[in-house]
Simulated scan of single mutants.
Amino acid sequence: MLKQRIITALWLIPLVFGAIFGLPTEYFSWALLGVFLIAAKEWGRIIDSQCEMTQWSFTITIGVLLIALNIMVPADEIWFKGMMHPIFLGVIAMGGLWWLISFLMVISFPKSAGFWKKSHMLKSMFGQLTLIPCFVSLLSLKALSTDASPYYGGTLVFLVMLVVWATDSGAYFAGKSFGKRKLMPNVSPAKTIEGLLGGLATTMIIVAGVMYFSPEQELGLLVAVTLFVALASAVGDLSESMFKRVANIKDSGTILPGHGGVLDRIDSLTAALPVFTLIYIAFWM
C-alpha cells in the first residue's frame, strides 16, 4: 500500500505543480472542473452507494453550479482593488460556517448522524458545502497572481497543500510509530492523538521554510495560522470518514492507486482551503 501511495504521488505531485504554476487562472478554472466532477461522482456514493441515478444527479448538479460560477465570475474579476467578488466571498463564508457545523457533527458522532443519515437531500447539501467552497477558494487564491508577482497566488495554493500533506504524512508515520490513544474511534478507528500531534509538529517544517525565504513574516501569526489550517484539514479528513462510515464504504473511489478516490485525496483540502482563504482575507488583505 505504501509503495502504491508513493508511486501515485510521484506522478501526481508534478501534475498538480504544473497546473498551479503553469496554467493561467482562466484555464485552470476549467481544468479544475473535471477534478471536482470526479469528486462529485464519488460523493454521490456517499449519498447512495447503490443508486447510479442518484450519483449522476449529484454530479450534474455540482457541474452546473461550478460552470455557472466560472461564467458569472471570470478569473480576472475575482479580485478588484483588493476586494473579492461578493459571490465568491459569500460562498467561502458559507464554507467556513459549514466546517464549524461539520466539526460539531464529527465530535458528536454517531449521535449527530441521526438527523441526516437517511436523508439524500441533506447529504447532497453537505456535499455541495464541502466541494463548492473548496473550488472557489482554490480559484480565489490562484487568481491573486499579478503581473508584478505572477506566481504569488500559485505559491499560496501550494503552501496550503504543503501544510495538508505535512499534516497527513506526519500523522501517518507518527501514528504508525507511536499511536496508542484513539482520536475519534467512532469516526475513524485508525487515527490516534499521537498521530495528530505528529502531523501538527511536521507542519513546523513548512513554517521554517517560509521564514527562511520570507523572513519579514510575523512568526507567531504564521505558526498560529499553520496550526489552525492543519487542524481544519484534520476536520476535513474526519468529516469524510464520518460520511463514508455511514455509507459503509472504505474508499470514495479507486482512480488513484494507494490513495483511493479523488475525494479521499482532497478531503483535507476541502476544509483547509476555505479556512485559509478566510484567514488570508482577515489578516493579509
Score class of each variant (00 low, 15 high):
residue 183 L to E: 02
residue 9 A to F: 10
residue 137 S to F: 02
residue 165 W to F: 13
residue 193 I to K: 04
residue 102 S to T: 07
residue 229 V to E: 03
residue 259 H to P: 03
residue 77 E to S: 13
residue 117 K to I: 06
residue 61 T to R: 00
residue 12 L to T: 11
residue 284 W to Q: 15
residue 227 L to R: 00
residue 193 I to P: 04
residue 26 E to R: 10
residue 216 E to C: 00
residue 201 A to C: 12
residue 85 H to K: 07
residue 264 D to P: 07
residue 279 I to N: 05
residue 138 L to Y: 06
residue 97 L to R: 09
residue 60 I to P: 08
residue 95 G to M: 05
residue 204 M to S: 09
residue 98 W to A: 14
residue 199 G to W: 11
residue 262 V to K: 00
residue 157 V to M: 02
residue 138 L to N: 01
residue 92 I to T: 13
residue 125 M to W: 14
residue 112 S to N: 06
residue 5 R to L: 14
residue 165 W to C: 07
residue 273 L to K: 00
residue 32 L to K: 02
residue 176 K to A: 10
residue 257 P to A: 11
residue 204 M to H: 10
residue 135 F to I: 01
residue 246 V to C: 10
residue 41 K to L: 14
residue 116 W to Q: 12
residue 48 D to G: 09
residue 67 I to M: 07
residue 229 V to T: 07
residue 93 A to R: 14
residue 21 F to S: 14
residue 224 A to N: 05
residue 83 M to I: 10
residue 155 T to S: 14
residue 266 I to A: 04
residue 43 W to H: 11
residue 184 M to G: 02
residue 58 F to L: 12
residue 109 F to H: 09
residue 1 M to S: 13
residue 54 T to L: 14
residue 230 A to W: 02
residue 86 P to W: 07
residue 192 T to I: 03
residue 246 V to P: 06
residue 51 C to N: 13
residue 258 G to T: 11
residue 214 S to A: 11
residue 111 K to F: 15
residue 180 K to D: 07
residue 56 W to L: 11
residue 247 A to F: 02
residue 83 M to C: 09
residue 282 A to F: 09
residue 232 A to G: 12
residue 263 L to D: 06
residue 125 M to V: 15
residue 255 I to R: 15
residue 285 M to D: 08
residue 189 P to S: 12
residue 152 Y to R: 04
residue 263 L to I: 01
residue 194 E to L: 03
residue 183 L to R: 00
residue 100 L to D: 01
residue 224 A to H: 01
residue 39 A to S: 13
residue 206 I to R: 01
residue 149 S to Q: 11
residue 20 I to P: 05
residue 41 K to R: 15
residue 18 G to H: 07
residue 189 P to Y: 00
residue 107 I to S: 06
residue 206 I to G: 01
residue 255 I to P: 07
residue 212 Y to A: 15
residue 103 F to A: 15
residue 250 K to G: 15
residue 70 N to M: 09
residue 39 A to N: 05
residue 227 L to G: 09
residue 112 S to L: 04
residue 229 V to Y: 00
residue 59 T to K: 04
residue 173 F to K: 01
residue 70 N to Y: 13
residue 91 V to Q: 05
residue 131 L to Q: 02
residue 23 L to V: 05
residue 273 L to M: 15
residue 194 E to A: 02
residue 171 A to W: 00
residue 235 V to M: 09
residue 72 M to T: 14
residue 163 V to E: 00
residue 237 D to I: 07
residue 52 E to Q: 15
residue 253 G to Y: 08
residue 14 P to K: 06
residue 61 T to C: 13
residue 179 G to N: 04
residue 180 K to T: 12
residue 10 L to P: 06
residue 147 D to Q: 12
residue 126 F to Q: 11
residue 135 F to E: 03
residue 184 M to F: 15
residue 49 S to W: 08
residue 259 H to L: 08
residue 130 T to I: 10
residue 53 M to F: 12
residue 248 N to P: 01
residue 237 D to W: 01
residue 229 V to H: 02
residue 282 A to E: 08
residue 171 A to L: 03
residue 267 D to P: 12
residue 63 G to E: 08
residue 175 G to S: 04
residue 196 L to W: 00
residue 43 W to I: 01
residue 206 I to K: 03
residue 113 A to S: 12
residue 140 S to G: 14
residue 4 Q to W: 10
residue 279 I to Y: 11
residue 181 R to K: 10
residue 71 I to E: 06
residue 150 P to V: 05
residue 263 L to Q: 00
residue 212 Y to H: 05
